[in-house]
Simulated scan of single mutants.
Amino acid sequence: MASHADDLSVALRLADAADEITTARFRADDLVVDRKPDRTPVTDADTAVEDAIRAVLAADRPGDAVLGEERGGSLGPGRTWIVDPIDGTKNFLRGVPAWATLIALVEAGSPVVGVVSAPAFGRRWWASAGAGAFSSFSGGPPRRLRVSGVRSLSDAYVSTTDLMTWGPARPRYLALLAACWESRAFGDYWQHCLVAEGALDVVAEPVANAWDLAAVQILVTESGGSFTDLSGEPRFDGGSGLATNGHLHEAALAILRG
C-alpha cells in the first residue's frame, strides 16, 4: 500500500490554518451568521476556513479536486480533498465548544487521509491508509487509537446527533437503543472519534453528507472499526453512516434495516 505521509502532512497544515481562523472567530461578538437554502446556518468563519484551505491546496496540490460544504465541487474519479470547514456550526454559533474542521483526501472513491481538528477541545485526530489512527491533546504526544472490545449490544454505548432526523425510521433507531446498554447524543464528528477511541461502540446517522463522513470513516476503520452507510455499503457518500467497533456492526445493521 502506498504511503500517504506527505498528504497527511499537508492535511495537518490545513488543519493548523483552519484552527487559527476558527479559534479567533469562536464566540466573537461580530460573528456573521446567514442561512443557506436548506436553512442550515453558515458563519463567516465557515467560508473563511474553506477559502483558506482551498488557497493552500491550489498552491500545494494544484492537480487535485476539492469538494467543500460551502463552495461546492464534486467527487472525481481521481484525488479529491473533501472539506467540512466547521462540522457542528450550530454549536459554534451558540458558543458550544463541540465543533471541528474535517479534512479528507479521497483516492478512487476511498478516503486515504483524514484529519479532525477540534481546537476548542484542544483535540486532534488523524489517520492515513495502512498507517493507523492517532489523536493528541493540546499538541501533546500522539496516542494510537483502538476501538472497544465490546461484543454484545447489551453492553454497548450508542449515539446519534439528533433523534428528530430519523423521521419515519425513528422506531428502528429506538429499537437499537433498547438493545443497547446506554444511549447518548454526542453528535456530529465527535461521536465517530469516540468510536475510534473505544469510548463509544455504535454511532448511527440517518442523514449525512460526504464532507461529514469522509474523514471519520478512515479514522474509524484505521482504529479497527467498521464504517458503512445504513444499507451496509462501505462508503461515506451514501447519505447516512454507521460506525461501530466492528464486533457489533452486523447486529446494529440488522436492527436498523428492520
Rank of each mutant, 00 (worst) to 15 (best):
A2C: 03
S3L: 10
A15D: 02
T22P: 02
D29P: 06
V32W: 10
A45R: 11
V49L: 11
E50P: 14
A52V: 10
I53V: 15
D64F: 09
L67A: 08
E69C: 09
P77K: 12
P77A: 14
T80L: 09
I86D: 00
K90L: 15
P97H: 06
W99Q: 07
A100T: 03
T101A: 13
T101G: 10
E107Y: 05
S110E: 11
P111F: 00
A118F: 10
A120C: 07
R124A: 03
W126V: 01
A131R: 05
F134D: 00
F137G: 02
F137R: 15
L145S: 04
V147A: 08
V147W: 03
R151K: 14
S154P: 03
V158I: 11
S159Q: 04
T161A: 14
L163I: 15
M164R: 15
W166L: 13
P171Q: 09
R172Y: 03
Y173T: 00
L194V: 10
D201L: 08
A210G: 09
L213Q: 08
A215S: 04
V220E: 05
S223Q: 06
E233S: 15
F236D: 05
D237L: 00
G241L: 05
L253H: 06
I255E: 02
R257G: 04
G258I: 04
